[in-house]
Design a protein around this nucleic acid. Sequence first.
RNA 1: GCCCUUGUAGUUCAAUGGAUAGAACAGUUCCGUCCUAAGGAAUAGAUGUAGGUUCGAUUCCUACCAAGGGCACCA
Length: 584
Amino acid sequence: MKQEIAKSVEKALDNLGITQITPKKGFNIDYPDNLEHGDFSCNAAMAYFKVFSQAVNSKTNDGTVWVGKNSNFKSTVELANSIKAELEKDLLPFVESVSVAGPGFINFKVKDAAFAEMIVKGEQKEVKGSSKQVMVEYTDPNPFKVFHIGHLMSNAIGESISRLVESGGADVIRACYQGDVGLHVAKTIWAIQKKGMTVADAKGSVTEKVKWLGEMYVHGSQFDEDEAAKKEIAAVNKKIFEKSDPAINEIYENGRKWSLEYFDTIYKRLGTEFKQFFFESEVADDGVKVVREFLGKSIFTESEGAIVFKGEDHGLHTRVFITSQGLPTYEAKEIGLNIEKFRKYSKLDESIIITANEQNDYFKVLLKAFSLIDQNIFTKTKHISHGIMRFAAGKMSSRKGNIISAEELISDIKTLVTEKIADRELPADEKEEIADAVAIGAIKYTILRQATGGDVIFDSASSISFEGDSGPYLQYATVRANAVLGKAAGNPKVDALPEQVTMLEKLLSRSADIKERARMEYAPQHIAQYLMALAGAFNGYYAVHQIVDDKDSLSPYRIALTKKFVETMTDGLWLLGIKVPKRM
RNA sequence: GCCCUUGUAGUUCAAUGGAUAGAACAGUUCCGUCCUAAGGAAUAGAUGUAGGUUCGAUUCCUACCAAGGGCACCA
């Protein structure tokens, strides 16, 4: 409907002799906040009036050229009324009325029957994007370190963006980049050896072994200020790279394997299936090679024995790519990584990288360097960042050990869910499944409900509450609607439509449009916001209408409406990476 | 010191330059013979400060105030 209205407005403008030659943002068709203003509103009169009244055949600041035959309009309202008159000459069949209001809005009231018919007929056209190939890199946990709630955030956002892009028809390659070499590994191995321990001291399940590694890392990090220890750690780091020490190799190989096995179990639980794993150890050599290749070509320069990129020349800051010891830093590895991405997937149209926003300035430097090394990679790479999860205790740090692991957070919330469904008469294994889906849904929703980029405040009192603006509220509304459908006998034929439709029908009609916007902006929050409004509308509807009722001729329509609601919710929740339990 | 980001109800978040700034939680008041009350209805409450651009600014620009992040061999 939106597109058709936009087209009819364009036609009306043409008829009035108003033509936009280089169309950019001519006008918008919006959903008014207040439904009294109509179902759609258009700001064309206001948007065009300025340019139009000022000059004919003029060029505006942004280069848009406007041509008008008639510039006699004295106000936005007058222009709006002229557009309205044109629209009424050939009124769209589903439009009941067109009106002009306020400063010059052109409002469209859509026939209730049009909404109702859309529910019954179902099908609204999906806007399919082109079949691009897009890589999304996210989560990026480091072996030997804890998989913490920051990784959970990256995963929730990355998975949702992947699904959004995928729903637009693109071929998405989910990628995960894991730091299996570097100082954090050296610290861990150094700590193990310092304590006189070996891999044999790692006991129990993979989870417990990984926990042990994490503790060793924390221990090793306590020597950050100790010069003697730092030298020893640097020596271990070098041996890891050279693979020259059998004892170190043994700890390294086992530790890496345990970590990766453990990460796999988490990915599975969160609903992510990576197609491509990259490792720092595999891209480091290439990174070094490229940095050295461009050394002296006024991109990288030597400074105090290290190889650096002088960011100051570009309004940024200097960063070290290869240390004075000759080892690659994160920066050099990242050069190697991004080259590898485009080498492996030569048809890549877009490469999205999701990280915490503390890396924003760092990524600016990296991308600036890439703009000088490889324009193709530079133009196709997009960095999206998220904030951190905050708790009352302050910022967490995996070095200090005051971090909250993803597993801890999930299990804490899962405990609460389990209490809540304790008196439900359901089999134990189903309860377990429900608790997992609801706990993870609650966390993911808390992350995705707000704009990506800001911090997420995790307050155990409110974010764990399942009322109102929460994942479980969405899941519950869907499950309940599904339960209602279970009471209905199949798909009864609809032979009566309501005279008046509600907000529920109107909201349902917007789903494709909302998805499109979320996809274009890489903004899952639009989906989250939409689903909240939709679930609220259904709950309101449910409270006043009996849906399944043999004696009511409108019942078949209500069943179709409920079905549409369930489909839309399920699809939307999938885009957020949230599962819908069968019962809850 | 320099650079970046963010300041919206008591709290946590919305709002592609548009109309009366929208939700949720907490508060107050209601709704249990009826498809899952993890529900529904009602009510009160907000754009950090000062300027500027604009027909119109939470949104763009400038200054100030406040918070967070980053700035050489960590990732």
